[in-house]
Design a protein around this nucleic acid. Structure first.
Lengths: 334, 334
DNA sequence: CTGAAAGCGCTAACAA
DNA sequence: TTGTTAGCGCTTTCAG
């Protein structure tokens, strides 16, 4: 009792394999009568078409390659998983296969095996990306906005998010605003810093070098940065921290030094980790649509795959400032 | 300039397609001379075999299906990602493709498309697993130990880990030991509780009902549980918490109530999250070999795939107690 | 609306 | 050691 083939189904239904193929692919018109009989035979035999054969015969793989750069940093948070979730669910919905590759850029799915490639960021995979683009394979990059490359991408609008944090803090009356950055080797880290500095300048707020502390998304770096900041003679009244983990650590340090948060120090994080809402002092932070980024990326790629070769789509997803209890109006302004 | 096929390579090398196939698959013997010429032609044409065609012709897909249950809880920590990483790197190493499916159990990769199936846990996918087993497809379950099913699995030895935590705490002189459990719908949650209770009984330590607080891996549940525990007239001197996130929250609550940690309350977590080492009070916790679990699971499955149908392998991976600074000897015993 | 026949790109006997 | 020849299981013209 081996696997039934399309021929077996055809025999049972009393039609040709062509007709079976037609109803499987919901293509062309088939008489209701025949359709019914085929469906019946399919159920009876538990027939499942062989994807490889379909691919070979039709030229469509119905598969997208998912590239996850083999970069340690990627795995240090729940970040990537959220994105993968968005991609995975979107793919599942339309019954598209995902070929997962965690790679340092030197290995990759065979172009012949996929209809398109979806990169979760591009660390170390720049060459691979270039090659893919050359081959004309539909490609999408998620979580990294590539300004100059003719490739579709969807990322979170980190700059605007940072600017809005500054706006928010400024509206609360803060003028002495510092930041603890993320890893500046990442685009997220860089953009959040950029947006921060831009907003400060735009509002003519002081932008002291001493207020720019460089972190790397690690807790230790946040701790060190906070300590420096709080020891400053003109210590800031608010700190924009580039991740929730770091922000929570920042608050810990401040509290330990006897500072009251948010009364004497306002802190804003970034991510909206589940942990942020449940922290000792519920954290005001920036929510990023990670799953949505994955979903949108996949959906856009999928359109690209079946549509004409459109010009690359570039998408920047908006964030949302989630107000909780780690910020307060400065008494100076009251 | 379309994709070169094996025929094109053969033509350029001046040999038959069979010979090309032979050198591609490193099979049978080919004269050094021919091998060289084929390799050259391959390089020149940038030839890459079409996996679907290979699959169809050879019957080997060189692909394993990776099943991730579509269960919200799975995505709430960095947990799954570590496991995926282990699997992904192992697969990459031997150039095996991974077909990713995030599913609620009602969809699955076509059995014809894969040589084996690797489940990351089984929530909601029990039926799928049964069906797979019936079909005789090589199967492996990771992160869930299935005692009674004839299926290979590798999981973390949560019970023993919990027992060793109790041992450790007891050696420190603690007798009043409480626990905050994880979600008891998960095997990890259940086993950690089991191990805890067993160890208490084995050492004839008090095992009061009031000391067993049910959490769900969420921070709120940890907070509530801790508050109850600390309000007890005979409040425990040590708490074993089923996850680092919850343990950190537990410490937060204790600290807020004016308790000193670890002087007045020892806390042990579980996971060894990156965050545990960098917490205000570096957390003593249990390190679980997540990536290794993934890697081992994959490797075992792979052997199963190419070897004979062996009897299922069941593996329980040992954990490691990481001593940091959240526990202390009780003064009672000094 | 239906089916016969020709492959899709590759591998695997089987001969030579 | 090499090449010839059938397919693998499906889709797709192209007639009917």
């Amino acid at each position: 009792m081996k696997k039934p083939g399309i021929a077996e189904v055809a025999r049972i239904a009393g039609v040709s394999t062509t007709t079976v193929s037609r109803v499987i692919n919901e293509v062309s018109t088939v008489s209701d009568d025949n359709r019914r009989r085929v469906l019946e035979a399919v159920k009876k035999t538990k027939y499942r078409p062989n994807p490889s054969a379909q691919h070979l015969a039709s030229g469509k793989a119905n598969t997208v390659g998912l590239i996850i750069p083999r970069f340690e940093g990627v795995f240090h948070s729940y970040y990537a998983l959220q994105v993968i979730k968005g991609i995975g669910l979107a793919a599942e919905r339309i019954h598209c296969d995902l070929l997962l590759h965690i790679t340092d850029g030197r290995t990759a799915p065979s172009p012949a095996a996929v209809d398109g490639l979806l990169f979760i960021d591009v660390y170390g995979c720049e060459e691979l990306l270039d090659r893919t683009l050359d081959e004309g394979l539909p490609t999408m990059v998620v979580n990294h906005y590539l300004e100059d490359l003719p490739v579709s991408c969807v990322a979170v609008d980190n700059k605007t998010a940072a600017e809005r944090v500054v706006d928010y803090l400024a509206r609360l009356g803060h003028r002495e605003i510092a930041t603890i950055t993320g890893d500046l080797k990442t685009q997220a880290g860089l953009d959040r810093l950029d947006g921060f500095v831009n907003a400060l300048k735009a509002r003519q707020l002081p932008c002291k070098d001493a207020y720019l502390r460089y972190g790397d998304f690690g807790l230790s770096s946040a701790r060190a940065a906070t300590e420096v900041l709080l020891a400053l003679p003109d210590r800031p009244t608010a700190i924009f921290v580039a991740s929730d983990d770091m922000a929570l650590e920042c608050i810990n340090v401040a509290l330990a030094k006897g500072l009251r948060v948010p009364e004497e120090l306002s802190v804003v994080g970034f991510d909206d980790n589940p942990i942020a809402a449940h922290a000792r002092i519920p954290l005001t932070t920036v929510r990023q649509p990670l799953s949505e980024m994955g979903r949108r990326g996949f959906e856009l790629l999928h359109q690209q795959m079946k549509g004409k070769k459109q010009t690359p789509t570039k998408l920047l997803l908006p964030t949302e400032l989630v107000e909780r209890q780690s910020c307060r109006q400065t008494w100076l302004e009251r």
